[in-house]
Design a protein around this nucleic acid. Structure first.
Lengths: 193, 193
DNA sequence: GTCTATATGGGGATAGAC
DNA sequence: GTCTATCCCCATATAGAC
């Protein structure tokens, strides 16, 4: 069906525009232009802007879930899986320096708008928090797994925020290095082999 | 002069509204209503919205500078001065959980708007970074002072971001505690007295 | 310095032809 | 399913009376 394809194109374009320009600032006209359809046609696929936002959040959730599954398949050492997470800051450095963290900046914007979909956006953070907690648990961190997960998520957010402000690649590199080091110090393996 | 007073009221109202609703989302009508003047009168004091933003940034800079000076006057131990900084997360906890960090969220929004005043807003971060660097230098951290300042600023941002998302006071308390502990481990005093 | 009235533009959203 | 045309609201901004 053609409608599904157009709808998907809209979601992907909106995903980019909401990230790079912010939800409020990105207009229907911008999205329609990016997808090369008319504004009128737009409303056949989405009745309201909030409906687009809901679809974008769902899309982002799916994408992140797929990524995390992939990491689990490719790497059975939980410490290395966590390193994959930390490494997002390097892999996406250019975009992060330009636009910040896609999850953090969306949550922040929706909080100020007092938007009904804020909890849905927060779900993106919860996804990472729970996944990290699982990895720390597998590392044998027991009770601390949840706190460690939140701590790492916090550092990732802080680095993204200052990377965006100061555009300092060396700072990012240094902090990623520090996170690796911190990770090595958590829950050292009981029986080294 | 009456004009100065009205202007000041406008800046203070805009400061609050830009923080709580975001720069774009807060309208002239909102500010005018808060100050109890007409929208028309507004333009006697500020020609454009960007002019209001510039005034708000300057006002915030002045406020922060005054606060930092006060901390220097009240406390001559640099470690305790740094603790004052960390403690902002507790002192302003309610507002931070509701609206995030006023500096970080403004910088983030202006980055997405590709706004001409983004560098001015970043100056708020620079103020804190340089002040913290000075404190770490006085602590005797030498070469590391700058990196330690950025690291602490990063953690403060990360905590504010997740506090806003998850509204978890216990998380904030835990992370503040961790920052205190981290601080104690940096540049231990050479001659304990 | 403050007001009311108004211009202007953009954004979300709808109606109806094709 | 896609289009053009249009409506309506709200925001920035201006003009001019008081």
């Amino acid at each position: 069906m053609k409608a599904d394809e157009t709808r998907r194109k809209i979601v992907i374009a909106a995903d980019h525009l909401f990230y790079e320009q912010g939800f409020e600032n990105a207009s229907f006209a911008d999205i329609a232009q990016a997808v090369e359809i008319s504004r009128g046609n737009f409303y056949y696929h989405f009745k309201t802007k909030d409906a687009v936002l809901a679809a974008v959040i769902e899309y982002r959730l799916d994408e992140r879930k797929t990524m995390l599954r992939l990491w689990e398949l490719e790497e059975d050492n939980p410490a290395n899986r966590i390193k994959n997470f930390i490494n997002i800051l390097i892999a996406n450095q250019t975009k992060i320096m330009a636009f910040g963290c896609p999850v953090g900046t969306l949550c922040s914007e929706l909080a100020k708008l007092d938007h009904a979909l804020k909890p849905e956006a927060s779900g993106l953070f919860t996804l990472f928090a729970e996944w990290l907690e699982q990895q720390f648990a597998e590392l044998g961190c027991g009770d601390q797994a949840s706190d460690l997960a939140m701590h790492l998520l916090m550092r990732s957010q802080g680095v993204a925020s200052l990377a965006n402000t100061f555009q300092d690649a060396e700072f990012v590199r240094r902090e990623v290095e520090a996170m690796y080091k911190w990770l090595d110090q958590q829950c050292p393996p009981k029986r080294p082999m």
